[in-house]
């Protein structure tokens, strides 16, 4: 892990849905090459947090700086350019079910590569991304033909195709069997090593957190309630923190 200026800095973030205050003055920073886990109960606002970071959801107040740019200052075009550097793995995978695996992976290229670049390099980029996740043979298959674990890998390959500097994982192992979940966690680690990406991982799968997380933030009542390594948090005597690990 390298210690440089944070590549994501979230300060005093607030987000409410009606009377429900999901995030209250939430603050975090992510360094280059770091895997930061956000741990919290279902409905605690973990997914809302990373959707605010990629501006799928507009926060009520607060500051989000990604790769040195305050995202609230960016127009649509600038935000789209920034998004090329921030991959997002959805909990549901969000594969385009009317497209083949190849078309799924090529889709993000249409905005960021020229037609000539796509004609020249798209094929090799798709093959490389599929090989990174060990599923080269699925290139012409439809998402419906794939198992849950394979779909997760394909979704990860689609995230990787633009070589992002940061990856946001939303519950990457939820709904998978323990063996597949471990394979996905291994894959996340190998991707981080290979491409030196940083990641924010939303999860409550303790095995996944143990395998992938360098640092953990506990999101409780919308706040950054506790922070540390897995071992540090497991020794924490606060009852709300202990609840997670017992």
């Amino acid at each position: 892990m390298e210690s440089e200026d944070p590549i994501i800095q979230v300060s005093n973030l607030n987000k409410s849905f009606g009377e429900n205050h999901v995030l209250r003055d939430f603050t975090l920073s992510l360094s280059k090459g770091e895997n930061l886990v956000i741990l919290g109960k279902s409905g605690s606002g973990k997914s809302v947090l990373i959707k605010c970071i990629i501006r799928l959801i507009e926060p009520d107040s607060g500051e989000i700086i990604v790769l040195g740019q305050d995202i609230s200052d960016l127009d649509q075009d600038e935000m789209d350019q920034l998004r090329a550097n921030v991959g997002f793995l959805f909990q549901s995978n969000a594969l385009y079910d009317s497209m083949t695996v190849r078309q799924n992976l090529e889709f993000p290229l249409r905005r960021h590569w020229t037609k000539e670049e796509r004609a020249e390099k798209a094929e090799s980029a798709v093959i490389q991304a599929l090989e990174d996740v060990g599923l080269g043979h699925t290139i012409d298959m439809m998402p419906i033909e794939l198992s849950g674990g394979m779909r997760k890998r394909i979704a990860l390959a689609r995230t990787l195709i633009l070589r992002p500097k940061i990856i946001l994982y939303d519950e990457p192992t939820t709904g998978l069997d323990p063996i597949t979940a471990r394979e996905i966690s291994d894959l996340m680690n190998s991707i981080q090593k290979k491409y030196n990406t940083a990641a924010i991982i939303i999860s409550h799968d303790l095995n996944c957190i143990r395998m992938t997380g360098n640092r953990i933030i506990m999101l409780i009542e919308g706040r950054n309630y506790a922070e540390g390594t897995m071992d540090e948090l497991m020794k924490n005597e606060d009852p709300k923190v202990k609840d997670f690990f017992e």
Partner: peptide, 17 residues
């Protein structure tokens, strides 16, 4: 169906309008 399975969000985060 694309909205509820987050496919539209996936397009947005990939930079496509």
């Amino acid at each position: 169906s694309m909205r509820v399975t987050e496919q539209i969000d996936a397009m947005e985060v990939s930079g496509t309008n």
